[in-house]
Nucleic acid binder design. Structure first.
Lengths: 238, 238
DNA sequence: CGCGGCCTGTCGAGTTCCTGTCGATCGAGC
DNA sequence: GCTCGATCGACAGGAACTCGACAGGCCGCG
């Protein structure tokens, strides 16, 4: 089974997703449920406040562009109701990003749309880790002799440092988190690339080949092709 | 809600934050928890006194501008209740600063709003160090051959003194405290700059480049760029 | 009061290097 | 041997980073 030791506080995480595009809200909720979390969605500000009062989320994903209330207003009302729940904001790639930047101070975080699902989940896990306990428990992924430290972003194969570009890093993190499952190219594309990425070229193959060159340099290969299906990261079976 | 579930964390610091702006209270509490402290919040004077009686903080952050009681009154009541807990005051940038200066006895301190989170945490640590240990032990940060003395504000690289501007000093301190973690520019902005700083330019890059020139002058570079993510301070890995 | 220096933040140009596309080649499986 | 997917070199467009130059502001000194 997967043996990534991420922060598990016994009972499952409760996530509230607030976004007026049902597509996005559902997407995020689905991925969160896949992680074993409980997820609720709200399509506007009023609904969000109602849900927050009832559902008592541990963390909130909040789009700033809502039909009724401003995202900032929602935040204020949450906070003045005494809810110290951490928030990860979603914002368009326009000027609002700057205003949001100032809000990450309380331990919150933000992400620019369109984002990649893995990126969002990584941020959520990071914020949770920070808000639940002290930070000195590092988040480290391990598969065979391959080790990834999510704080320092260091990746080592058999102790030897490997330098990766951002895309390579994210793709590898996804492979490691899901190891030893086989992932289709479509899954990889959906999780690692922005959700509205149109390209259906061979980007995935390309990055995989880069990773192979950097990771499997002479050693036993860890990334395996399952022809007609996709890729796996694991120790060679049998 | 505030949580003083007595999860006995040994000798972890207990901090009470009193501020009527939930943003600020939350901000400070979150950062403190990140340091491994236990934090409780109060939004007005009465609540503060109740919390102080129950929570038994080791240190208090107290805004002077409260809706019900004057901050000075809160202080008096705390003290007359026998609580010798040290206090760090928050005050607006007006005349009150002078009155505060007069009231800060022995171990107390004060800070003018808007402050930077790192500045506040540094003061808290300093006050604690003074009040708890009769042994005046210095607070020195060290990364490789880079040494920062937080009492004298001296910074040395390989024994050689380096003079830094206030901003450079604070940014470097943050990098050193969090080393070897990678920090995003948003994180740096949020911790080192005042919490209502709206700047969206490349100030961070600028100060980083200044630090590099002053610190890495000819030597092995300690500040590394992680493209697409942020910066790290550490000995070059591998 | 006025001058000048230092610190800070803005702007913009130059540079690096990451990313996605194309197309040629390779190889597995039928 | 044929076919189709997989692999990977090469290239161009662009995003991110670096840093010099400048301007406003604060402070201390004369």
């Amino acid at each position: 089974m997967t043996h990534h030791e991420h922060v598990d506080k016994g009972n499952s995480v409760r996530l509230l997703v607030v976004d007026d595009e049902p597509h996005i809200a559902d997407l995020v909720a689905t991925v969160a449920r896949y992680e074993g979390w409980q997820a609720a969605t709200a399509l506007n500000g009023e609904e969000a406040l109602r849900e927050a009062a009832e559902f008592h989320p541990d963390i909130v994903v909040l789009d700033l562009m809502l039909p009724d209330l401003d995202g900032f207003t929602v935040l204020d009302r949450l906070r003045s109701a005494g809810a110290m729940v951490p928030v990860v904001f979603l914002t368009a790639r326009d000027g609002t990003a700057d205003r949001v930047a100032g809000l990450t101070r309380g331990g919150d975080d933000y992400l620019v749309k369109p984002f990649s699902v893995e990126e969002l989940m990584a941020r959520l896990r990071a914020v949770l880790r920070r808000s639940t306990g002290p930070s000195w428990k590092r988040s480290v992924l391990k598969v065979s002799d391959l080790v990834m430290d999510e704080d320092t972003r260091e990746v080592r194969r058999g102790g030897k440092l490997v330098t990766l570009t951002p895309t390579e890093y994210e793709l590898l993190r996804y492979l490691m988190r899901r190891s030893p499952a086989v992932l289709t190219k479509a899954q990889i594309l959906d999780h690692v690339w922005e959700y509205d990425f149109g390209g259906r070229s061979n980007v995935v193959e390309l990055v995989i080949s880069h990773l192979r060159r950097k990771l499997d340099d002479g050693r036993e290969p860890l990334i395996h092709t399952v022809r007609g299906v996709g890729y796996v990261l694991r120790r060679a079976a049998e």
